[in-house]
Design a protein around this nucleic acid. Structure first.
Lengths: 127, 127
DNA sequence: AGCATAGTGTCTTAATGTGTCATAAAGTGT
DNA sequence: ACACTTTATGACACATTAAGACACTATGCT
C-alpha cells in the first residue's frame, strides 16, 4: 500500500481539532495505529505515525549529545513536538503548535508518503 | 502483452468518475491490479499502475524527511498525487486534480505504455 | 470547593463517493 | 447488412465522510 498522498482541505473546529481524511485514516489503520507525533518544521507542522517518528528519533540519536549544535538541533525538534492520538477520527493540535503554524479554521493536509504535513490554508496557498 | 496504447475519449460523470476503456482494463487485470496512482504533470494527469508508481517512489526514498530542500522536492511529488482504485470499472478523480487538469465532461485518455495520461478534451484538441 | 478553560464523545446535516441497473452505442462475427 | 456481444453512458439509490453543534468530562487555578 502507498503512503500518504494528495492534498486535503479540512476545517478545524473551535477547540483545535481536525478531521483526518478517510484516506489517511485508512493508511493509519492498515499500516500503523492511532498514535501520531506532531512536530514543528519552520512554519508548518509534520504529523508522523508513531513508528515513523521512532525512525527519525534513531537518526537523531546518532548526533552527539555533547556537541552544542547537535544539542541545539535536537532541542528544536523535541521541544516543540507533541503526541496526538487520533480520537473519534480527529486529532487535537495543541494550542502552541497552532500558534506557530498560524492555524485558523482553514487547514490543508499534505501527504508526504510516510508522514503528512499540516499547513495553515493561507500559508499553503502562498507557496 | 503490450502496455497502454491509443487514445480514448470518455465522459466523466457529475461526480468526477470516468470509465476506464476495456483495453486498459484488460491490461490492468493482466499485468497489474486495480490500484492506480494519479499524479499531476503540468496541465494534465498521469495514471500509473501501483507497481510503476513504486519505481518512481523508490527514486525519492533516498531523500531525508528532515531536510528542508528534500522535503520541498518530496512535496511537489506527493502532494499532487492520489490513489485511485478502479471500482466498478471506473476511477474517481479527486476534485483538486480535476481542477488542475481542467477536466469537465469530455476527457481523453492517452496510452503511454506503462502509464496513461488523462487530458481535458479541449486541452488535448489544442495540442 | 467552585470556576474557567481545555479536551472529548456523540449526533445531525450536507456533501461526497460508490454500486447497480437500464439504455444506448460501438464493435464483432457470419 | 444483420444479429449478437461487449462496452459506455447516465440515472438513481445507497453508503460514507466531513462539518458543525452541543453536551459532557477532565484539568488546573484561586
Amino acid at each position: 500500500m502507498n503512503g500518504f498522498l494528495g492534498t486535503y482541505s479540512v476545517n478545524m473546529d473551535e477547540k483545535g481539532r481536525l478531521n483526518v481524511p478517510s484516506k489517511f485514516k485508512a493508511i493509519l489503520e492498515k499500516s500503523y495505529d492511532s498514535n501520531l507525533v506532531v512536530a514543528v518544521m519552520d512554519n508548518f507542522l509534520i504529523a508522523f505515525p508513531q513508528k515513523e517518528w521512532q525512525i527519525n528519533e534513531e537518526k537523531l540519536s546518532s548526533l552527539s549529545g555533547l556537541e552544542r549544535e547537535d544539542r541545539q538541533k535536537m532541542r528544536e525538534f523535541y521541544s516543540r513536538a507533541s503526541e496526538c492520538e487520533l480520537k473519534s477520527g480527529k486529532i487535537l493540535v495543541p494550542q502552541f503548535q497552532r500558534e506557530i503554524a498560524g492555524l485558523n479554521k482553514e487547514v490543508v493536509l499534505v501527504g508526504m508518503s510516510k508522514s503528512f504535513e499540516i499547513w495553515a490554508g493561507d500559508r499553503w496557498n502562498k507557496l
